[in-house]
Every structure is written in C-alpha cells, then in structure tokens.
C-alpha cells in the first residue's frame, strides 16, 4: 500500500469542491428566485436530452481513430436492450437483461 501524501489529500479535496458546487448552487439559489416560464420550459427538456446524451456517448467510439465510429459491441447490445425497455418499462429487468446481453456479445465477438 502506498502512503497517502498531504498533496493527494488536498487534490482530492479540491476535486470534491468542484464537483460539489455545481450540485448545490442551484438548490441554494432557486429557493430565492422565481424562475421565468421560458427557463422552466428549457429545464423540462433537460432530462430527455441529458439521458440520450449519456446513451449516445457510449455508442460512439472516439478513441481508436481519427474518425468517430460506432462502438459495435455496445450498439449490438443497445438494440435489444432498448426493445426490452420499451416492452417491459422496467428499470430492473432492462439492467439485468442488458448486462447479460453485453456479456454474451463480448463472448461471441
């Protein structure tokens, strides 16, 4: 085991601060400000946008070449997972099925 240096502890604290502030600042300020209708409308689109961004991020392969390509194993797993999600509308079933399909895809590819 490596010994923990003071520098490491400060580095972790620094990173903790910059991840904490964006999380809490809106919770502090929204209490005192009434957000305009257009901002609330804008915020209503955030969940779908951010969730699809997080999915798309995993479908793209940005590392192995100059051209952004599709991450084929993930895409092949994504299609049946999406169908299972639409049919079952269940978080648990989708997650378990997704993991099993991913393992199978990696095993056969």
């Amino acid at each position: 085991m490596t010994t923990t240096t003071t520098t490491m502890v400060w580095l972790i604290i620094g990173c903790a601060l910059v991840t904490w502030l964006p999380r809490i600042i809106p919770f502090i300020f929204v209490r005192n400000v009434k957000l305009p209708e257009v901002v609330l409308k804008w915020l209503s689109f955030i969940p779908v946008c951010i969730l699809s961004a997080l999915v798309i991020e995993n479908l793209l392969d940005t590392e192995s070449g100059k051209i952004v390509t599709l991450n084929w194993p993930v895409l092949i797993t994504f299609v049946p997972t999406l169908i299972i999600a639409i049919v079952t509308k269940s978080l648990s079933i989708t997650v378990v099925a997704g993991v099993i399909i991913m393992a199978a895809v990696r095993f056969f590819m």
Binding site: V48, N58, T77, T81, K89, T94, G98, V99, I101
Partner: peptide, 25 residues
C-alpha cells in the same frame, strides 16, 4: 470487470430511464 458485461449496467439504466421519460410525456 468489463468481461462480465457489468459496465453496460449504466447504459442499460439510462436507456430504461429514457424510455420511461418518453412514456410519460
């Protein structure tokens, strides 16, 4: 851990949450 497909748990969860969001709009 990737070998077991466990890294996909997160993606699968975002997919399901996205479907549930769309389902309720």
């Amino acid at each position: 851990p990737e070998k077991w497909g466990l890294d996909f748990a997160l993606v699968a969860m975002f997919v399901a949450l996205l479907v549930l969001q769309l389902n309720s709009v």
